[in-house]
Nucleic acid binder design. Structure first.
Lengths: 344, 344
DNA sequence: CTGAAAGCGCTTACAG
DNA sequence: CTGAAAGCGCTTACAG
């Protein structure tokens, strides 16, 4: 209760309970090897004094920071989804008794310096990587020096294997399934709206290929267009090009929720009704998906599972498990009222 | 280069340089009191070995965790803006040589337990609070036990003073100015779309009152409606009510970017042109603002300044500076092409 | 200006 | 089952 109240220490608990400091430590870290009577005595002393071990002291002794590093992506506003992800990740890390250490890093190799410093100072025990891009240099760099990490997203190396453990959501499968189910609902002209070609890589390309494969399998020849920016407006223009076609699509699969909302607005502006005249789907199940009228049909990422798997992979030193591909679940809403029963 | 390469320690640097460990410490922490020759010698040893002091050991000795705690708000997707804020905050904290420690907490008093534990374990030195709500219990609780913190947002206590240091953006002034400038642009019927009454508090109420005051000052009697949910759809319905009025508004001030985008979509659906037939403004300058066609006129929060001020307040033990009210800047875009020259 | 000593608050083998 | 000893890697006064 005093200003910055002198924290209670192990020593005080020991004195209070009339045992050695050693024993107090055992009560906390290895209670099974402590006599029940002693245990109770020490525990009530801990209770009475409100003792909690100092993380710092413990870290020094155990050589474990108890902190997992996570780099916040550059300014522009990384995907809306990352918000949810970060929350789930923080919870998953906390479940293992550790905490998340947030940091920022400049782009380019400078960024690696930040990772290096964090390791050199032993500030973190491991890293979680996200916002993974094609040929991401971080993975190989970290793996090369034996730093523990797990990546949300693949680096899609042109050759060789994915360096280090990763978790990803199968965008290919999800988009292919979207096509299958739209087809089953009667659609024959199913288009795709993707990110601009320059950023059409990694997850974006994976989703595109899934849509393509879905169409091919059914003998459909849909058209794919690309938004010139990662914005609703860019997607609206892309959708306009699609809808101006003499044979316009009756369904549009968008690579993200944000783009899907842009597509929706173009559909509405033309007096067309989403979910009736034109069906529209997104990806991520971000807050936008429940924010539009009727709701946006989208692919929900298994966020909690992604997070807990990442944390598990970090501790799995062995190369037994190198990658985990999770399944996204289609959530049907008004913008594309897919038959629930047909859901596999 | 070895697996989990044994980190270099002070002792090794001392041996390498042929001085005591003490002197190495001085080179790092008080170089001015070290002989230039020794300094150079030690520094080159540090360089050669790639030494960096262990944060944990240093923390134990200095009794400073070097970590600032920040609680991630509950799931639903706190404001889009919080993303930008978190990034800026992390950078500001890093500039003082510390890092951000992220954590989650259940709602209610349970949440306070998490804060208490973090302090008891001396895991963090201080907290940054955000997502502040009316009568937020955290502030008083922390202040009461002498825990350092700074709050983004006021708690709007019904009586008494704001407990502890805070930083906020003057939503009242920004919305009043919006009204003034819309009026100067010729608008006479300026409406407001706010958050549902249940959440109409804190920042939301502040902005509403600013709009009211702006109207009153000019003798305007605008209508305020509330979205029944924090969604584009809710805002679209609210806007519909407004536009169905026999004397519909020619300008609509929305309490957030998300609601503004909902308003925009309703405007467009009616074949009205934003920025021509109806002017629309938002708040936050989130990524949505540049994502809609023509862009959304909005109020930009001085994010970097908010963040750096918070960090400064944390270290200012003295009660000299209790609160800082910053000014939001109106960013004019297509949805409400306010005269740039008129900007004060 | 430099170094020997004590200490930060724990944990980890290791005796007893 | 319990305790005395050593150590984690630094910093902080304090002699010299």
């Amino acid at each position: 209760m005093t200003e910055r109240g002198q924290a209670v220490t192990l020593r005080q608990v020991a004195a209070h309970a009339g045992v050695s400091r050693q024993t107090v430590s055992n009560v906390i870290n290895a209670p099974q090897r402590v006599d029940p009577v002693t245990l109770a005595k020490v525990r009530s002393a801990i209770e009475a004094l409100g003792y909690q071990p100092s993380r710092t002291a413990r870290s020094l002794a155990t050589r474990q920071a108890g902190l997992i590093g996570y780099c916040l992506a550059g300014l522009p506003g990384h995907s809306l989804y990352m918000d949810q992800f970060l929350h789930a990740l923080t919870e998953a890390v906390e479940e293992t008794g550790r905490h998340m250490l947030l940091f920022t890093a400049p782009d380019g190799d400078q960024g690696l310096t930040t990772y290096a410093n964090l390791i050199a100072q032993r500030t973190v025990d491991a890293f979680i990587l996200s916002d993974t891009v094609d040929e991401d240099p971080r993975h190989e760099w970290l793996a090369g020096r034996g730093v523990r990490f797990a990546s949300f997203g693949r680096t899609w190396p042109r050759q060789g294997e994915q360096p280090g453990p990763w978790v990803d959501v199968d965008g290919f499968a999800a988009c292919a399934e979207l096509v299958t189910r739209l087809h089953a609902a009667g659609h024959r002209r199913i288009a795709f709206v993707g990110w601009g070609k320059r950023v059409m890589m990694g997850a974006g390309a994976d989703r595109l290929r899934g849509w393509e494969a879905g169409c091919r399998r059914l003998g459909l020849s849909g058209r794919a267009v690309y938004s010139d920016s990662d914005s609703m407006d860019g997607a609206a223009h892309a959708a306009a090009a699609l809808l101006d076609d003499p044979e316009p699509p009756t369904a549009i699969v968008a690579v993200s929720d944000l783009l899907a909302v842009g597509v929706l607005s173009e559909v509405r502006r033309r007096g067309l009704r989403p979910g009736h005249d034109v069906w529209v789907t997104g990806f991520d199940d971000s807050l936008l998906a429940t924010s539009v009228e009727g709701g946006l049909t989208t692919v929900r990422q298994p966020t909690a599972e992604i997070a807990s798997t990442l944390v598990r992979l970090i501790d799995n030193a062995g190369p037994a498990e190198t990658g985990v591909l999770l399944t996204g679940r289609i959530v049907a809403r008004g913008s594309a009222p897919l038959d629930q029963l047909q859901q596999r």
